[in-house]
Design a protein around this nucleic acid. Structure first.
Lengths: 200, 200
DNA sequence: GGATTTAATGACTGAGGAGTCAGTAGTGCC
DNA sequence: GGCACTACTGACTCCTCAGTCATTAAATCC
């Protein structure tokens, strides 16, 4: 076995990484700090050197939620592209985010532990969900104003348009081993649905 | 406090009911057998009289997955109703199932513990997911044959059509306390989406 | 090379919870 | 009423795991 090294700077990141994997796989209660330590290639005590409690580590892991890039928002506010093009761009971005294993693990954690740690839900909601909602609403508003989209029950609640992407994400953390989801094909079908609904 | 009663027949059902609530709220690892017992109005030892281990109780709870009624299938196979009508009927049924608290709890359990107990995923997949998929496929096939639906990327993967319903179900077990989902409005928006996509 | 600092270790402690079982009491039979 | 049977109870045992801390050794300074 390799000799131990002192790497004060690198440890916290590596431990959080290991925590993400363990909490994501087992949930907060079932995850064992010793397993986190082993995965981070460190002794159990070392984990507690950087994070005072299991809960503190968990919070650091949960804080990993990366914000959905909202640079599309500027593009939406200006007049570039048709509503359909913007919608396609936004949805493609959702699928790309979803493909990252880190996003999958974080989503699992959010669903599993959201009730016990509401702060996770709140930050994910603020940082990802609400942004996506706002963008969808703007796109649909603009489409209606431009006469590209006919108003109706759907345009009153544009978040419905993201539904299939959410389903795909959930599928990946549940039934994928049983029936793998063809992700590109799924995304294309989703875009086709939106195109049929809003196209000419 | 009331005197204890001997009710050999009623206990198992009551204990499973209590288990559903506890496992659904906390997950397998964090749920405490003593809490299950209290909820079932019984002493801890009594639970072990009927279920030898925590895991055995969990399996009994998970086996509660109620099949999606597939009486629609017959209607689909015959020629009653337009594709759009059948689609609307199927989706409405999904939303109705989703509104039942038992379904919500079971879905939480499936997502939280599916990795540790793959049998849950398998039974839910066989009993609900696959049936819904088959029905969607049949409806779309029939619609194409009847010239009501134009084939494309969407019709190659009709499960995408259920996406928003899945999103609604997931929303209920996550963000609902933060931003309650107007469920009827959501269903109407979903039906509107499908109607726009497949309507005239 | 020796002294000093501190990152890292892992055997240990205490708490909590699954599972046990000797004892209690509800129920039915004579 | 007394007896037999067994559903039910809850204090107890044992084990797992979060968190501790005395000890070890890597790095740095002189």
């Amino acid at each position: 076995m390799p000799t131990r090294r002192r790497r004060k700077e690198a440890r916290p990141g590596e431990i959080v990484e290991a925590g993400l994997a363990e909490f994501g796989a087992r949930g907060f209660a079932a995850a064992r700090m010793e397993d986190v330590a082993r995965r981070a290639q460190v002794a159990k005590g070392t984990v507690f050197l950087y994070f005072p409690t299991k809960e503190a580590l968990f919070e650091a892991v949960a804080a990993r939620a990366t914000p959905l890039q909202d640079d599309l928002l500027a593009q939406i506010e200006s007049e570039q592209g048709s509503s359909l093009d913007l919608l396609r761009a936004l949805l493609s971005r959702l699928y790309a985010a979803m493909a990252r294993p880190e996003t999958v693990a974080l989503m699992r954690i959010m669903i599993m532990e959201g009730q016990r740690f509401p702060a996770i839900l709140e930050s994910w909601h603020r940082v990802s969900v609400q942004r996506a909602q706002v963008m969808l609403e703007r796109i649909v508003e603009r489409g209606i104003a431009a006469g590209e989209i006919r108003p109706g029950a759907l345009t009153a609640l544009p978040m419905v348009l993201a539904g299939p992407a959410v389903m795909a994400a959930l599928w990946r953390i549940t039934f994928d081993p049983l029936q793998p989801l063809p992700i590109e094909q799924f995304r294309d079908a989703h875009l086709d649905l939106v195109t049929r609904a809003f196209g000419p």
